[in-house]
Nucleic acid binder design. Structure first.
Length: 919
RNA sequence: GCCCGAGUGGCGGAAUGGUAGACGCGCUGGACUCAAAAUCCUGUGUCCUAACAGACGUGUGGGUUCGAUUCCCACCUCGGGCACCA
């Protein structure tokens, strides 16, 4: 019987499905382990070989943990709401549900062929009403919560109302928007509408006017992480800033905890760093500057991290969008300011980014008073100050801030250096080092001492206070789209009102067309009778990250219609032990999920405050494109090695026509009509193609479909090969060339069990050498899998097979099969069965590692000799140290050491020196 | 501009202070075969040499060390992230 992977894989996949081999239940008698893949968005293109890389790794780890006795939760589902299906629907009229369903079926089929050990009974789809019921439910909880800074947790709004009734707005310390202070009496006198407006400033899910990234091309707003370089990540359409009323999540309230939590989880440093940058903590202080506007006095609060430079403030700057602008503009400057604001508004986000270093601004007419010196400085307005960060106003210190410096140079403002010996004639001195000058009470201090000293002074004199700012913004949660979760909100007398829980799920209505309405309303405005008890329902839908923020919790208890997750299920599975996925979610999904989870934690719904304990980013698999070279003006193609002698055009050629860089000439002619009569200039009788590593894409003809690999080599080879390509976390090109090597390995493995049709496994006792090979592999595999070094494990298997030679002993081969099963489960099952086991190898135990059996015959340690010198001696374990030293002394001529400073390495076996290397 | 990460044969990559290049691909020669495929064996960093031997060799230049791909400093190149965040 030859290794017939086709039938073997079909047989075992059917068997796993029929027997429910991977169906998982809570089991308090075994330790749990939760292995999760980032669930895919089912696109129309299907999977290419890059997609399963992470899934294969997680599957290996899951199977390994099962062998180690863990109760493993390893689920899969689909992130099924999203833009592409909707765009397709707009173009074709095809309902997104239909295309999504079709794509999911395709994905499932492709995944099943690879032999993953998912528990499919736990599958979730974000577009399923039974699923999005809980997305909507979480939203309602956020709507009904506020963030208590004092207790550092979300609390129910009812407690907030009670506090207002007791002591007005001063009674709480909350993360909130701009609220005019009010007393308890005032609160009680507010109308329903006024109360609603005030509470909205406190809710964790709230509605508010904000500058959003508006993408006209997609007809919707986008979150910051959905925009890159002023273009939408999906579609690449220009994005502009626009003020709109939107649902938002108060993620910023959690900034400190999101930052602090990073220290307690096992993610890569680079990923943590990305999140730290995104959260962007900076410590400084807020200082109040009195400002004079035509004799009128008002307070302007600024934020600075460089309180030490306050003596060098020579002007102030407001963000154009700041509320302070109208207040601080004097009548005579009004026209100029209006003109400038119009100019700024006209600019798109893209232009702002492109023109980062062009300096623009306008003088407001007001003057600020430096609280330390009493000096008056002009107040300017410029787009280089951002409304959304700090207070939207800054003190400018041109000598020690490059942006302020450029501004001062452009508008001829004063520059006062504050650090001894610095030269500010050409550029600012931004470094935080040196001795302070021109700075009153700070003179003589080092910058590092001056910063805290200045802050302390400011606080002591009531000029301001210490303050920590974060860059992290609240998440915009509305999308003007159809294919997403509807908001469980209706407008009663214009007041946003939550639906009662019993009304969930609020199902997505059928509509005739998926486009926005003619008057610019979201598609849901087309729905007939989109009302609740006669009141209009919200017409925007939730963004893509809504459904993916808590899906890992739903897998724990996927069919529960009474709760997001039963406390017992949550208490058992707790959180994800290993999460594998792409790095592209670093500042999107992975922030939102952590936020969402912490919110649920505050409410006591989940028991862990971090959702993902360990996270691995798998690298991308790039395509390896092949090229042919057409001589300009002809239909003649010249082989790569000879192309420099001609003037040629490089043409992508479909990689299915190329094997080992050699072009299939007949296949090429048949590929496209225009190549039918192609001529070739060959080298050594062959046409050699050029190649390059590029993104895997249809247009470059370099897409490799895993189905084809499964047809030609089998799923086990695909799995092994993807792991063998290189370290999991690294990006690497797919190159089918090397795949024969791992395929050959599996065939060799098979032949240890079968000689033709004859099963040749014997019950003979293994030799120590054979035991050593086995146990070395056990140790290596254990260590490597735990450190996610799967490529070296595959190599170790090949080495073991080389070392084992012609061993057909059951005592070696059975454990070897168990070791192989996480990587190549189908062949392992087949051989396991052939060895007489009735139960799936999934339920076998990982062989016990005995380091003594794996140990080398020789051991290495240093030996001192002649005072200064030390020998590194590798010797048989049976030899004592004294014997080695004696052996070395006994054969000095063999040692031929060269004297002072030289090190000698000796390899000794009992009785004699066999190798003596002088380094 | 700032912050990470990486540079090793023809190729993918091993080795984190101790014989650099494991393992695989490719290539060389051979066995089996009428032949091919498959399989097995042999060799394969560079230079020099008939061979033995030898010299050089992990992006570049320094340093620490008896010893550095590995640790430290500077630089170069590539990849990724952030980017008017005061």
């Amino acid at each position: 019987m030859a290794y017939d992977f086709k039938n073997i894989e079909k047989k075992w996949q059917a068997r796993w499905a029929a027997e429910g081999t991977f169906v998982t239940r809570e089991d308090a008698s075994r330790p749990k382990f939760y292995v999760l893949d980032m669930f895919p968005y089912p696109s129309g293109a299907g999977l290419h070989v890059g997609h399963p890389l992470g899934y294969i790794a997680s599957d290996i780890y899951s199977r390994y943990k099962r062998l180690k006795g863990f109760n493993v939760l390893h689920p899969m589902g689909y992130d099924a709401f999203g833009l592409p299906a909707e765009q397709y629907a707009i173009q074709t009229g095809q309902h997104p549900e239909v295309t999504t369903e079709k794509n999911i079926a395709r994905y499932r089929q492709q995944m099943d062929r690879i032999g993953f050990s998912y528990d499919w009974t736990r599958e979730v789809r974000t577009c399923d009403p039974d699923y999005y019921k809980w997305t909507q439910w979480a939203f309602l909880k956020m709507f009904d919560s506020w963030y208590d800074n004092a207790r550092n947790a979300a609390r129910p709004v009812s407690e907030l109302v009670a506090a207002f009734e007791q002591g007005g707005s001063a009674a709480v310390n909350a993360a909130c928007g701009d609220v005019k202070p009010f007393t308890a009496a005032e609160w009680k006198a507010f109308s329903d509408k006024e109360k609603s407006d005030v509470l909205m400033q406190y809710r964790i899910a709230y509605q508010g006017e904000t500058a959003v990234n508006w993408c006209a091309g997609l007809g919707t707003v986008l979150a910051n992480d959905e925009v890159k370089d002023g273009l939408s990540v999906r579609g690449g359409f220009p994005v502009e800033q626009k003020k709109m009323k939107q649902w938002q999540l108060r993620v910023s309230a959690y900034a400190a905890r999101l930052l602090e939590g990073l220290d307690r989880i096992d993610w890569t440093d680079s990923l943590k760093e990305m999140q730290r940058n995104w959260i962007g903590k900076s410590t400084g202080c807020e200082v109040v500057f009195k400002c004079l506007t035509d004799g009128q006095e008002s307070d302007v609060t600024i934020f600075t991290t460089r309180a030490d430079t306050m003596f060098g403030v020579t002007f102030m700057v407001l963000a154009p969008e700041s509320d302070l602008v109208p207040r601080l503009t004097t009548p005579d400057r009004k026209e100029a300011v209006e003109e400038y604001l119009a100019y700024v508004r006209k600019k798109t986000e893209r232009e702002r980014i492109a023109q980062t270093h062009t300096v623009t601004g306008v003088f407001s007419g007001s003057y600020g008073i430096n609280p330390l010196t009493g000096e008056q400085v002009p107040v300017w307005i410029s787009e280089y100050v951002l409304a959304g960060y700090g207070t939207g106003a800054i003190m400018a210190v041109p000598a020690h801030d490059s942006r302020d410096y450029a501004f001062a140079k452009k508008f001829g403002l004063k520059i006062v250096p504050l650090i001894e010996g610095c030269d500010v004639s050409e550029e600012s001195f931004d470094a935080k080092e040196g001795r302070m000058i021109n700075s009153g009470f700070l003179n003589g201090l080092d910058v590092k001492e001056a910063i805290p000293a200045a802050i302390e002074y400011v606080e002591r004199h009531g000029l301001g206070h210490r303050k920590v700012n974060y860059r992290l913004r609240d998440a915009i949660f509305s999308r003007q789209r159809y294919w997403g979760e509807p908001f469980p909100i209706y407008y009663k007398d214009g007041i946003p009102t939550p639906l009662p829980e019993e009304a969930l799920p609020l199902r997505l209505p059928e509509i005739s067309e998926f486009k926005p309405t003619e008057d610019g309303q979201p598609p849901l405005a087309r729905a007939k009778d989109w009302t609740y008890e006669g009141w209009p329902l919200e017409t925007s839908t939730m963004p893509g990250f809504a459904g993916s923020s808590a899906y890992y919790l739903r897998y724990m208890d996927p069919h529960n219609d009474k709760a997001l997750v039963r406390p017992e299920a949550d208490g058992y599975w707790r959180n994800v032990d290993l999460y594998i996925g792409g790095t592209e979610h670093a500042t999107g999904h992975l922030i939102y999920s952590r936020f969402w989870n912490k919110f649920l934690y505050d409410l006591g719904i989940v028991c862990e405050d971090e959702p993902f304990r360990k996270l691995i980013n798998q690298g991308m698999i790039q395509g390896r494109s092949s090229f042919v070279y057409r001589i300009v003006g002809t239909n003649t193609f010249v082989s790569c090695g000879l192309k420099d002698a001609y003037e040629t055009t490089e043409i992508h050629v479909d990689i299915s026509l190329v094997r080992g860089d050699r072009l299939d000439l007949e296949g090429f002619k048949a590929w496209r009509p225009e190549f039918a009569d192609a001529q070739f200039v060959l080298e050594n009788g062959e046409y050699i193609c050029g190649w390059a590593v590029e993104k895997m894409s249809k247009s470059m003809f370099n897409v490799v479909n895993p189905d084809n690999i499964c047809d030609d080599y089998g799923a086990d080879t695909l799995r092994l090969y993807e792991m063998f390509l290189g370290p999991l976390e690294q990006s690497k090109p797919w190159d089918t060339k090397g795949i024969d090597g791992v395929n050959r390995f599996l065939k060799r493995f098979w032949r240890l069990f079968y000689d033709g049709d004859r099963f040749i496994v014997t019950d003979e006792a293994p030799t120590p050498a054979e035991c050593k090979v086995l146990h070395k592999l056990i140790g290596k595999e254990q260590a490597d899998i735990e450190s996610f070094s799967f490529n070296t494990t595959v190599s170790a298997f090949m080495i073991a097979l080389n070392d084992l030679g012609d061993c057909h002993k059951r005592a070696i081969l059975e454990p070897l099969t168990v070791l192989l099963s996480p990587f190549a489960p189908h062949i392992a099952e087949e051989l396991w069965e052939a060895c007489g086991h009735a139960e799936s190898i999934t339920f076998a135990r990982f062989p016990e590692f005995d380091p003594a059996l794996a140990a080398d015959d020789t051991v290495t340690y240093p030996v001192s000799f002649n005072g200064k010198m030390r020998f590194t001696v590798e010797l048989a374990k049976s030899l004592s140290r004294e014997e080695v030293e004696a052996a070395v002394r006994a054969e000095p001529q063999t040692a031929k050491y060269v004297g002072g400073g030289q090190i000698v390495k000796v390899v000794v076996v009992p009785g004699k020196i066999v190798n003596f290397v002088v380094k």
